[in-house]
């Protein structure tokens, strides 16, 4: 018996393979989501599904539409960049049904310290308090209006705002020097700290008042020759005046 040109076994295998491949092709035709590949290798409808997600935070523009009387003064206050919902929480429901859903307001003492509690990692100059020492037990709102936070009275100590510097200086050799020994502080700096600045020394000779050779004062104060010490550098290029390291 002469074998057929294509052996039977090859035909059988070819049959099975073509079934598998055909099944894959059919499955691809049937099951690939219709919008797949419209804009790229993904289901284009997925974008619409993500867009359909409901918003919970309405955005400050929505608040300002009705609460003009609060927004206006807040806009000019230190809290101008603090969005309403940062404190009041998500309020999209309130925009939709103003009477049914009323967003809360954190009136207790715990909330404001999230921003204003003293933390050395916070940027210098950001207003911070030591919560345990700062009028313990009183709600922040008894003295401060969160929509227009002004200090009830001008701070008596520089450390009220410059906590970080004060903390360092307190344990330094300069601990006994008051801030105003080196800084001239205009009265207005206490009220408008960001507009009226305190003055800082600008010359080597200023430090020289204590540290130059022959300057008055006790023998403990380190003395240098202003002409030879430090060349063209200013004192504070190397020494941090609030925590002078050199002995």
């Amino acid at each position: 018996m002469k074998a057929p040109r294509i052996p039977k076994k090859i035909l059988g295998l070819a049959f099975i393979f073509s079934i598998v491949i055909a099944a894959l092709v059919v499955a691809r035709m049937l099951f690939i989501p219709p919008s797949f590949g419209k804009y790229g290798h993904y289901r284009a409808d997925a974008v619409n599904e993500i867009v359909a997600q409901e918003i919970n935070y309405a955005g400050y523009q929505a608040c300002m539409e009705c609460h003009d009387e609060i927004y206006k003064p807040k806009e000019r206050s230190y809290h101008k960049s603090v969005s309403c919902e940062a404190c009041h929480g998500p309020a999209a429901k309130h925009v939709e049904a103003p009477d049914e859903f009323v967003p809360g307001a954190p009136r207790e003492r715990g909330y404001c310290p999230l921003c204003h509690d003293y933390n050395p990692s916070r940027p210098t100059g950001f207003p911070q308090i030591i919560t345990e020492l700062h009028n313990p037990g009183k709600a922040c709102m008894t003295c401060h209006n969160p929509h227009n936070p002004v200090l009830p009275h001008t701070p008596e100590e520089c450390s009220a705002c410059h906590r970080e510097i004060a903390n360092v200086k307190r344990i330094s050799y300069h601990a006994s020097l008051p801030c105003v020994r080196c800084h001239t502080v205009p009265e207005k700096h206490m009220v408008q700290p960001k507009f009226v600045f305190a003055q800082v020394p600008v010359e080597r000779e200023f430090c020289g008042e204590c540290h130059a050779e022959g300057a008055p004062g006790g023998p403990d104060i380190p003395r240098i020759d202003l002409d030879t010490h430090g060349e063209r550098y200013l004192c504070w290029d190397c020494h941090y005046p609030h925590y002078p390291e050199a002995r």
Binding site: I50, V51, A52, I55, G59, H79, S81, V82, S83, A86
Partner: peptide, 21 residues
């Protein structure tokens, strides 16, 4: 998602919206 559902509505991502500083 950069709050994609907010972006298409012309709103900011919520983290940007509430960032106080």
């Amino acid at each position: 998602t950069f709050c994609y559902h907010r972006l298409v509505r012309g709103l900011l991502p919520v983290c940007v919206e509430v960032c106080p500083t």
